[in-house]
Amino acid sequence: MSQAKLTVESLSLSYSRGDPPALRDVTLDIEENSLMAFIGPSGCGKSTFLRCLNRMNDFVRGVEITGRVLLDGRDVYAPDVDVTSLRRRVGMVFQRPNPFPFSIRENVAYGPKLLGERDRGRLGEIVERSLRNSGLWEEVKDRLDAQASSLSGGQQQRLCIARAIAVEPEVLLMDEPTSALDPMATARIEELARELKKIYTVVIVTHNMQQAARVSDHTAFFLMGELVEHGPTTKIFTTPQDKRTEDYITGRFG
């Protein structure tokens, strides 16, 4: 087993005081340079859990989080942690492609510029490398100044991936990145996710169990805020240990 990039210890979360917790006492290691998938029915807490990993839940009013999330051994919830630099290290791609209303080039260069990169040559290199790594370069290299909105849905999602990796994160979180895409575009993103894990640690939330089975090294199954079972994907999908996992992946509920 390689080293854990992220270690989550006894993480619990309630959206407001008195409500049943959305996450209960979740403990999980995420290996470096691996691809982990979170599966489970709607409302099981998998997206909430993903968003805890780069503190996206901080925005939610009244949220209460206990436990620890360690990135390379350091607690991301420690008071001295700069959330902006945390999110640079732990990037995110969302369910619906959300390109900014700029050109393709500007979308990718946005993050590096924000971080102070002004050199046009270096920005050009970053744009090319990011678009190559997101598998979009060949399709857009001749029209980098076209509006991002002119791209197809699948291309827009790959652009968002390029934008996320332009700031060279260490972890890439993907929250149902293909749920708005057709099967061909989905296949491209899945292939891409498997390429990306060679460089980054990738965590993907998916409604689609088959997607988890196809792409991931490890799978974690959530149910009603609880992490029911996690382990190597081949094991979860051939010999799950918990009856609830078995019932879910065989389509008996959820």
Binding site: Q210, A213, R214, T233, T234, F237, T238
Partner: peptide
Amino acid sequence: SFQIIARYQ
């Protein structure tokens, strides 16, 4: 073989 069946249908 079974793992491939389980993963890729």
